[in-house]
Amino acid sequence: MAIEVRIPTILRNLTDGAKAVEGKGGTLDELFADLDVRHPGLRARLVDDKGLRKFVNVYLNDEDVRFLGGLDTALSDGDNVTILPAVAGG
């Protein structure tokens, strides 16, 4: 079992067009590191040196991870992670 990760349109150039990919990790941070091995560059689009990028929304089983533990959020096999670019501006 693994963790399914849904990828938004704008990042599918890093997943060969795949809408969803699988990865593993005990935390979100580990999951992103694992994904980056097969999809180089993906992690950098999600995380910067301060943590989760401000204008990326990441959901664990439909909960915004900002209200869970951010990058330290614990994951289990069978979890679903969804990534969406925030829609924002001035």
């Binding site: 959901y59 900002r66 969406l84 925030a86 829609v87 924002a88 001035g90």
Partner: peptide, 23 residues
């Protein structure tokens, strides 16, 4: 129609939970 989570005259941002539901 989406809620502007910023409720601001100079900025907008979709509420993340509403956005997930709509997407």
């Amino acid at each position: 129609a989406m809620a502007n989570a910023e409720r601001s005259p100079t900025f907008y941002r979709f509420d993340s939970q509403e956005q997930l539901k709509v997407w």
